[in-house]
Amino acid sequence: MIEDIFPERCTGCNDCVTVCPDHVLDPGAAGAPPVIARVAQCQTCFLCELYCAHDAIYVAVEGAGTGTTLHHPTPLIGRLRHDYGWDGSTDDPLRAFWQLGPLLREGLEISAARHTRRQATALSEAATGQEGDEALSSRALGTTPKDPAA
């Protein structure tokens, strides 16, 4: 969730108030940083950070599960906008995009092949004859999806 708006970086342009899809922010007083008014509506999409030309916002990743919420560590300020290539560091931010689909398909094949191997091992250990052959063929890796949605 949006954690901080750094007053020393914020210009008070209020662009983040507009770009937030979920109306988390209210404009601040003249020239002052916006107010994080409805943080419960923040879905941690990071898009305010992406649109902040001054890297004045940090979105912390909270919630249950593995890891610890890091509170705006300096190396991560502006990192997301840089990775997106929105900081002007590259003219061709999407040069690797064409590789993503094939890599994700490869990942899925790794999982599917592993599952098939395991089923085959389980079946040969159980040595159940006919029933096993049928089960094995119906579980064999058949289709490769065309669209691992990113």
Binding site: T66, L70, R79, Y84, A96, L103, A150
Partner: peptide, 16 residues
Amino acid sequence: VVRQIQPATVAAFERR
């Protein structure tokens, strides 16, 4: 490739 194309996915981990 994930870092370059899906920076938000990486951030979901890196920020924890």
